[in-house]
Amino acid sequence: MELNPIITVNGLHFSYHKNTVLDGIDFSLHRGEVVSLLGPNGCGKSTLIRSILKLIHAKKGEILINGKMINDYSHREIARHIAYIPQYHNVPFNYTVLEMVMMGRVSKLGFFASPSKHDREIAYEALTKIGIDNLHSRPFGQLSGGQKQMVLIARALTQEVNTFIMDEPVSGLDYGNQIRLLELILELGSHGYTFLKTTHYPDHALLVSSRVVVMNKGKIIADGKPNEVITSEMINKVYGIGADLVSHDNRTYCFPVFNKGVL
């Protein structure tokens, strides 16, 4: 682990209409980590991610990217350090896959410059790396959810950065595409890419993360190795349900336990 973190968050507070969403967050992300942010709805995961991307501004606390205050960065400069991969979504205009992927290059282009042949090649490379180069001329709107998510990852790759932020990347995907996406994250992680992603699934955190951060009510309540952080007690405390953790083949799996007699 390097000494200088990519992202450092110190004492971050955020409130929205007098509701405290983030209540003193201290967090850092180091090169090569695959970090899963776990926590129930409304715990502040997305708010933390959006603060790091400078999409919202916290009143108290500071965020540093590569040692520099986030307020000293423009969005263009942040995009040259961190790529955001949103949940797949619909776009009002039906761009082709290649056009969509090329949009990742905008932070690299001069104000009046058009994407060059070089930018086009980088876009093709990214599609090839993800294994979806055969889709390049298809309209984005006609792809399946899984394909759309892959296109958005390819777009992030064209930003030529090492750090990716994802907000609940598997949401809305079918089971096969969820697993394929996790596999891709694992593979990119093993190639040295850094990931910070939110997730609703302790199992997914166990499968691909090098580190798990658990948030509850605007605070970080646990931070460490997946096996050490994800325990029956933690799940019971954070989600209010029972869970068993079972080891098999050097892997740990999380099983929910139903409360008998709900009715």
Partner: peptide
């Protein structure tokens, strides 16, 4: 006409445009 490439990105919505590096 010169702003064409920015219009592509603005049409993705404000947050995504900012994250891609646009001063929306």
């Amino acid at each position: 006409i010169m702003m064409g490439k920015y219009f592509d990105i603005l049409s993705l919505g404000d947050e995504e445009a900012k994250a891609l590096g646009i001063n929306v």
